[in-house]
């Protein structure tokens, strides 16, 4: 049960133009930096990317946007990226904005083998247009479908060769639910360890969900909003 691949290039070897990818992370926190760099190098295009945000200019998914590799973004918030805005306004890029909890829970549903969820988020708004509404106990809920992604690409802190993953602090965010949701899931980790080195009681993503794993390198871990107080 060894899932280790040598590097990001090998991990993404069969990702092709036109595929749908999930990319973990919140803002620039918990991003699969090595795989994003490999995707940029490989130059696959026409991608549909499911990710909470679209990176910033020069980092994260912003790097893929700059190379015009993304056909469609499915996100909850896309604010911080001038190139993104340019492509959106010129019609080069398609964007589907969905509520953040809906985004997370549609990933979760895929990982739990459920075809759809019911959520009150978006009732009475343009998000509800064209969607089935069901009333439970006097309250309306939207039916939202589980995501169907060819690949999920996530970043964890530690992982073992069997694919078990542990995340660190709020770099966890969307990574565990996306890891569960991909037809093929690729995990890059800061530290790859042998089976037995991670406490089974402390695993966040069981290895059954992970198909390929490798130890990444040169993590930049850029901070989007550095805020501090004086001593």
């Amino acid at each position: 049960m060894n899932k280790v691949v040598s590097n990001a290039d090998e991990a993404i070897r069969d990702i092709k133009s036109g595929m749908t990818l999930m990319l973990g992370g919140f803002g620039l926190c918990g991003l699969p930096e090595n795989c994003i760099a490999a995707l940029v190098k490989k130059g696959v295009k026409e991608l549909t990317c499911i990710s909470n945000n679209a990176g910033v200019d020069g980092f994260g998914i912003g790097l893929m946007l700059k190379q015009r590799q993304v056909k469609k973004m499915i996100s909850s918030y896309v604010g911080e990226n001038a190139e993104f805005e340019r492509q959106l306004l010129s019609g080069e890029l398609e964007v589907e904005l969905i509520p953040q909890g809906t985004l997370a829970t549609r990933c979760m549903a895929a990982g739990y083998g459920m075809p759809a969820i019911f959520t009150p988020a978006g009732i009475g708004t343009e998000v509800a247009q064209g969607k089935e509404i069901r009333n439970f106990h006097g309250k309306d809920y939207l039916m939202e479908l589980a995501f169907d992604a060819d690949f999920a690409i996530v970043k964890a802190w530690k992982g073992d060769t069997m694919g078990n993953l542990v995340y660190r602090h709020t770099a966890r965010n969307f990574n565990p639910v996306m890891a569960m949701a991909g037809k093929i899931t690729i995990a890059e980790v800061e530290e790859l360890v042998e089976p037995g080195e991670l406490d089974p009681d402390h695993i966040h993503t069981p290895g059954i969900y992970v198909h390929r794993i490798f130890q990444g390198s040169n993590y930049e871990k850029r901070i989007e909003q550095r805020t501090v107080r004086k001593k």
């Binding site: 803002g27 709020t170 770099a171 909003q225 501090v228 107080r229």
Partner: peptide
């Protein structure tokens, strides 16, 4: 609260993407 200068951790942010 926000971290003291020099104690920021890229893995610890809030929903506004601020270090906390």
């Amino acid at each position: 609260p926000f971290p003291f200068e020099g104690e920021e951790d890229a893995d610890m942010i809030n929903a506004g993407k601020q270090t906390i």
